[in-house]
Computed example of a mutant assay.
Amino acid sequence: MYPESLGPMIFTFTGAGNVSQGAQGVFKELPHEYVSPLDLQNVVETGDCHKVYATVVDKADHLYRLAGGDYDDEEFEKFPDRYDSIFADKIAPYTTCLVNGVFWAPNTPRLLSIAQSSSLHPVHMDTSVLKLQGVPALPQRLLAVADISCDLHGSLEFMSTVTTIDNPFTMYNVHTDSTSHDISGNGILLMSIDNLPAQLPREATDYFGNRLFPFISEMLRLDGRKRLYDYEDISTSVKDAVIAYNGELTERYKYIEELRSTK
């Protein structure tokens, strides 16, 4: 049971791709309940401390159009400056652990800026009850971040260092904007391992190998003598997965050139 004085534990997953789905696969082994991002405040106030809660935040859940109107994915891709995020006000203050798996581009709104992280709502706790339970007083509800995306100064602006498998955690002090390998103090516990799949090398190899094997015979037929999409005997699954062909990025992955030029 989670200490009632700290309220229910809420895991917030960002993104809907393989990264987020994989993290949720581990989470689902716990006694859990999924809730809408709009219900987080109610969960904090009335939730059950005998289980953990999860919410999945997609772009439409936290991005809003500055000029009014509904979120439009196609417009956001072309004109991200027309949007801002409510993540810091409506989601982060009620999150216990943030599992970040979103792709972030430099011209898009952040989930949390440095300034926003320093003004997260404090946890209102009865310190006398905490002392009896052996629970330390905590500065904010957001206690930990697993930044699987590992974008330095990206969607989480304060994420300034990549951690390693040998030393997976650092502590971020929201008030001094500093990071320390001493994780005994107050702050946000950060994990940002950029080669996280290496934690499970056998499992990762088996999984990717089994998914790739059925397409090997098709891949061997790509000899470079024709344009990629001119091969009629190659499936769309293979064509869409090819990142570089004949020394150039394929059309679906041209955005990588734009990312490289911005950095």
Rank of each mutant, 00 (worst) to 15 (best):
G47V: 11
Y53Q: 03
E218I: 01
D48T: 11
E74I: 10
H32P: 02
A115K: 15
G154P: 12
A115V: 13
A241K: 09
P197A: 03
Y207V: 14
G25R: 03
I165N: 11
Y253E: 07
A60D: 11
L156T: 10
D177Q: 11
Y255M: 12
T163N: 02
R260N: 04
P37S: 05
G209H: 07
I234K: 12
V57A: 13
Y172R: 06
A244K: 08
D48G: 02
E258P: 07
V135F: 08
M1E: 14
L112V: 12
C97D: 07
P139L: 10
T161H: 13
V135S: 02
D72A: 07
D233C: 03
K131G: 07
D84C: 08
L189E: 04
Y2C: 08
E157W: 11
N18G: 07
D240G: 04
V35T: 05
H181P: 00
F169S: 10
V174H: 10
L6S: 03
G154K: 09
D58H: 03
A23N: 08
Y71Q: 02
P214Q: 13
S237L: 04
D126W: 06
I243G: 10
T108Q: 13
F76E: 07
N18S: 13
Y255T: 06
P31Q: 11
M1F: 14
A60H: 11
Y2F: 15
R225C: 02
Q116E: 08
K90Q: 05
E203H: 03
M219T: 05
A16C: 10
K90P: 00
D166Y: 05
F169G: 09
A16S: 13
L249H: 12
E75K: 15
G185R: 13
V102E: 00
E257Q: 11
E4V: 15
N195R: 14
I234Y: 05
P197G: 01
D81Q: 11
S20Q: 03
G17K: 05
P122K: 08
R141C: 04
V26H: 02
R82Q: 13
D126H: 05
H50L: 10
F79V: 06
P37C: 04
G209V: 13
S160G: 12
I91R: 01
G247F: 06
N100M: 10
Y253R: 06
F169I: 12
W104Y: 14
S184G: 05
L200P: 06
